[in-house]
Design a binder for these strands. Structure first.
Lengths: 188, 188
DNA sequence: TTGAGTCTATACCGATCGGTATAATTTGTC
DNA sequence: GACAAATTATACCGATCGGTATAGACTCAA
């Protein structure tokens, strides 16, 4: 079962660098130093490997996001906590975050996108809930939670994209700036 | 040369639906009703087909963006024009926009991402220039043009993402709202 | 120590991958 | 109608694709 984890580790690395479709199972097993039946014993299929990988890496991320996203009457604070959680996770799991982004924007009928969809969907639902609950305190937000959730995550991911490109550092100050800009605009 | 265009048309459709890696040249030529040597006569390689496709579809998009992004002292107006240009182009070229997004977020060592990079880069440069020029009128923007360009495009693409998902309509009102929110925040 | 279950390797499957050598066919020009 | 160039098809290349049948090796409980 050390092989099992190592297969996921290498697959994560390779998928993140070159993409799920472009990486063959042969390459994964050779990088680990085992043979194909080993992989198929643990994961049944290439897709099974991907799903296991998403569960192992995505589960903890959703837990952290959920913990960060409990709205308690202060939207500014909640969004800042969420932004910090995203930034920290992206930094601690750079490789996975890169892969997850690629899969999220992959074509709708691709295996990669179909595999990631539940994971992305849950993120959106958690974020939408924040804006829905906040609308009880800020009436002018009402009915726009989908747009705001997508827009907010778009901002977050734009910053993380720059970080993955070595153009930017992620830290709590940037989280503050991002949230502040989202709430009050770039002119303020 | 009718075959040439039709090969690009079908390739665009297939790449957009299932991804560059997952679609074989065999499938492309069969969809058009020709054989492989025809494709290789026009494009030399699968990658050549992709590059030709990006030039044909991406060129006009960059022209439109460049025209929309001439800053003339009014940042609000310029950003609105840009947002409208993006929205209109995404609506008129839904398939290409989907493909271009997938390639933009594809893994850095994938062929798809390497092919799209100059195209994405030029978009960023055009947007950065807007914010750089606007900083002459709005001093508090200075030194943040990279973040703002990425953030603004992130917002735009978040909205287009919802549109491609059939969750939202793109129109001039949404362009206004998006820009207004970017400039003044969701509270205003 | 035997037997069941887990794990892994050898060796193979048919299908598809991107790409091409060769030649026939079409097209436009003189 | 002759000829060159552009275009297309037939048939093939070696390599790799995801996946598996079979059989050893290992662990562990009885």
């Amino acid at each position: 079962m050390d092989n099992k984890q190592e297969l996921m580790d290498r697959a994560l690395e390779l998928f993140s660098q070159r993409g799920y479709d472009a990486v063959g199972v042969r390459e994964v097993v050779e990088a680990v130093g085992v043979t194909k039946p080993t992989l198929y014993h643990y994961f049944l299929s290439k897709r099974g490997l991907l799903d296991a990988l998403l569960r192992r890496e995505g589960g903890p991320m959703l837990e952290r996001l959920l913990r960060a996203a409990t709205y308690q009457g202060d939207l500014v604070l909640t969004l800042e906590t969420i932004a910090q959680a995203y930034f920290q996770f992206a930094q601690e799991n750079k490789t996975f975050y890169r892969m997850q982004m690629a899969m999220k924007f992959a074509p709708p009928e691709s295996e990669a996108n179909q595999a990631i969809r539940p994971f992305s969907q849950e993120q959106y639902e958690i974020l939408e809930q924040v804006f829905t609950q906040a609308a009880e305190d800020h009436g002018n937000l009402r009915g726009r939670h989908k747009r705001y959730a997508a827009g907010f995550l778009g901002q977050i991911n734009a910053m993380i994209g720059l970080y993955l490109n070595d153009t930017l550092e992620l830290n709590d100050e940037l989280a503050y700036l991002t949230v502040h800009q989202f709430l009050h605009g770039i002119f303020s």
